[in-house]
């Protein structure tokens, strides 16, 4: 396995180090589907996930959260930059070499209906990881599955049932059990509760936190629900149009957001108080498209406080390493 090649030092407490990662999709059009452009879904992202923490990832729909998460998991190659997982450069590894690392990084899907095989019993779905990696003998596998089902609050006697016999919340528990059965280090949760209603949501969030304490898991938690992210995350990264624009500890980000986009995002959270309704949509303007090249700051067109410099120069993520970092000229200039 390739060891990290970049000159940067890898601190022992960093489980994942993402440096300068981009992920592109070809835009095709016409009858022959010829390539006519490139969608830069992720465009130069630097990110560190530390062992044992929960890093929240929020951002506008379509800004590249899912694509970034899939690149970190090595499910698609990085077009630029590198992803280092636990000391191994995984961003360019062929699938065969990636397989032994797979068991250490898992994904919990958003849709509990689409992510379970309707033709497999839930026991078989949960056991799949053990089968694939040849862990234990049959009896041991069943024992591990039963233990995992207990942990996520499912009766092991239900292992021979099919997914359609379960509710959304129960299915999401199955999805969590399937991801955790390999005892992974990193678990990426891509909107794990957005398909669930509030009461089930809180059960699953509590479960996710409890499992982290019990098993020492590291989470990358993707969500558009800021209340949920505030509830589970230790640090939060905010993404806009393929880039990280702000990253900080939870208290700092929610207490004193600096980037104008983060501020708009926080202001847009619907409050459960019908007496204080907004009359205006909070963020004016159109979301720019990721398939054109930008000069200057990507948020410029919608930013209420943009200055001249924002039009010509792109702000870099600045601030103390591991501290509150922001990509905004206003913040950099201390305005």
């Amino acid at each position: 396995m390739t060891k990290a090649t970049s000159g940067k030092t890898h601190r022992a407490d960093e489980l994942v180090t993402v440096s300068g990662v981009s992920a592109h999709f070809a835009v095709r059009s016409g009858l022959l589907r010829r390539r006519t452009g490139t969608v830069k879904a992720v465009d130069g992202v630097d990110l560190v996930i530390r062992r044992g923490e929960t890093l929240g990832l929020v951002g506008e729909s379509g800004c590249g959260k899912t694509t970034l998460a899939r690149t970190i998991l090595g499910l698609r190659p990085a077009d630029e930059g590198e992803v280092v997982f636990d000391g191994h450069v995984i961003s360019q590894l062929p699938p065969r070499d990636l397989k032994p690392l797979r068991r250490h990084m898992q994904l919990i899907f958003q849709d509990p209906y689409a992510s379970l095989d309707p033709h497999a019993t839930i026991g078989r779905s949960i056991r799949a990881g053990l089968d694939i990696h040849g862990i234990g003998r049959a009896a041991e596998r069943s024992a591990i599955v039963a233990d995992m089902m207990n942990r996520v609050g499912l009766d092991p006697a239900l292992a021979d049932r099919f997914p359609h016999e379960f509710s959304g919340g129960q299915r999401q528990r199955v999805g969590i059990a399937r991801a955790l059965v390999l005892n992974p280090q990193l678990v990426v949760c891509d909107e794990p509760v957005s398909a669930l209603d509030v009461s089930i949501q809180s059960q699953i969030l509590n479960l996710i936190k409890d499992l982290q304490a019990d098993l020492g898991l590291t989470y990358l938690f993707v969500s558009h629900n800021l209340a949920v992210v505030e509830h589970v995350a230790d640090r939060v990264a905010v993404m806009y149009l393929g880039r990280i624009v702000e990253i900080a500890d939870r208290e700092a980000l929610f207490g004193a957001p600096r980037h104008p986009y983060t501020q708009a995002l926080l202001a847009a959270v619907p409050q459960p108080d019908p007496t204080h309704r907004r009359t205006e949509a909070p963020l004016a303007g159109e979301t720019p498209s990721p398939d054109v090249d930008y000069q200057g700051c990507r948020f410029r067109g919608r930013c209420p406080v943009a200055i001249d410099r924002c039009r010509t120069q792109e702000p870099e993520l600045a601030g103390p390493v591991n501290g509150h970092r922001t990509a905004c000229w206003r913040v950099a200039d201390g305005l």
Binding site: V58, E60, H224, A268, V269, P270, A281, P282
Partner: peptide
């Protein structure tokens, strides 16, 4: 709006 972030959600609700 389950799959939408809050700013887009606000726009849709609007």
């Amino acid at each position: 709006t389950t799959a939408l972030d809050v700013t887009v959600q606000a726009q849709i609700l609007h």
